[in-house]
């Protein structure tokens, strides 16, 4: 064996051992690409299935969102319409508010004038009230004086009427005495009558019942007294009530306080109108 052969044998062995070492190291460190490929393919299939599911879910959600968008769009349209209507109502309300505010301002001015007028009226009312109080106090005083004067007047009237009755009785006695004197020239002087004998000619012939209607007329009217044309000869007595009428109209009542033979006098009651001479007086309406 030559030297060159020996060298080639040694080199070939060394290179073979080196190459085998590299091969073992490379193959030992190599991964299982097939199993990794299978895993990656399964992952890809799973991802594809997930993608399909997600796509379906996306489509479903997109459809739902589309419907929701449509509904929201309709809602937005309705709300927009309502908003426009509300804006129009707001403008109308503002216009009405301005108008009412103007009316309120004008009424405020009117009310201020009314308040001033009311103050003036209240002041005049207070003044009138004071005058009324003064007049009432004066009226009370006058009423007292009037009552006193009326009482005195009634007393005087009664005295006057009694004196009138006395005068008439004396006139009748005078007439009777004159008749006696005229007849004494014919009749013997023995037949002398008593001068002071009361005369009964003023008495009525027959008593008049209260139910009998007595009618007369008003002869004279004083402040509170009325003189009637009927007296005891017609059946009139004291405290009898006569109704004074004018045609069909009731005027007042008269309570008889004093009675003479052919006339009577009384005070007014239930005065509706003041009687006048000539009005009708009757005990029954």
């Amino acid at each position: 064996m030559s030297t060159l052969t020996k060298i080639l044998v040694v080199l070939l062995s060394l290179f073979s051992i080196f190459l085998c070492g590299m091969m073992v190291a490379f193959v030992g460190s190599t991964k299982n690409f097939k199993s990794q490929f299978e895993e990656q393919r399964k992952l890809a299939q799973y991802a594809q299935a997930e993608l399909t599911k997600k796509d379906e879910l996306f489509n479903t959600q997109a459809f739902k969102y589309k419907e929701l968008e449509n509904r929201l769009q309709e809602t937005i349209t309705a709300l927009e319409t309502d908003k426009n209507q509300l804006v129009a109502d707001l403008r109308n309300a503002q216009r009405d508010s301005d108008q009412y505010q103007a009316q309120a301002d004008s009424w405020k001015g009117v009310m201020t004038g009314f308040e001033q007028s009311v103050r003036n009226l209240q002041a005049s009312l207070q003044q009138t009230q004071q005058q009324l109080d003064t007049a009432r106090s004066q009226r009370i005083t006058d009423q007292k004086d009037l009552n006193q004067i009326t009482a005195e007047l009634h007393a005087k009237i009664v005295q006057l009427q009694s004196m009138e009755a006395e005068r008439r009785r004396l006139l009748e006695q005078k007439t009777e005495l004159e008749q006696q004197i005229s007849t004494s020239s014919i009749v013997p002087a023995r037949e002398v009558r008593v001068v002071t004998q009361p005369v009964s000619t003023a008495l009525p012939v027959s008593p008049v019942t209260a139910a009998h209607d007595i009618r007369g007329v008003v002869m004279d009217v004083d402040l509170t007294l009325v003189q009637l044309s009927v007296g005891t000869a017609d059946g009139v007595r004291e405290n009898m009530v006569f109704h004074i009428t004018r045609g069909d109209q009731f005027l007042c009542d008269v309570v008889i306080t004093n009675v003479d033979i052919n006339q009577s006098a009384g005070v007014l009651q239930l005065v509706q109108q003041r009687p006048r001479p000539g009005d009708t007086a009757s005990t029954q309406l």
């Binding site: 044998v9 040694v10 062995s13 073979s16 085998c20 091969m23 073992v24 190599t30 690409f33 199993s35």
Partner: peptide, 26 residues
């Protein structure tokens, strides 16, 4: 030299068997 050649042949053979097993298993 014979031992060297035997060693090299054994190494190559072992490597081939190892690589074949790996390829078959994977």
């Amino acid at each position: 030299y014979t031992a060297i050649l035997a060693l090299a042949s054994l190494t190559v053979l072992s490597t081939a068997v190892y690589v074949a097993l790996k390829c078959w298993m994977y």
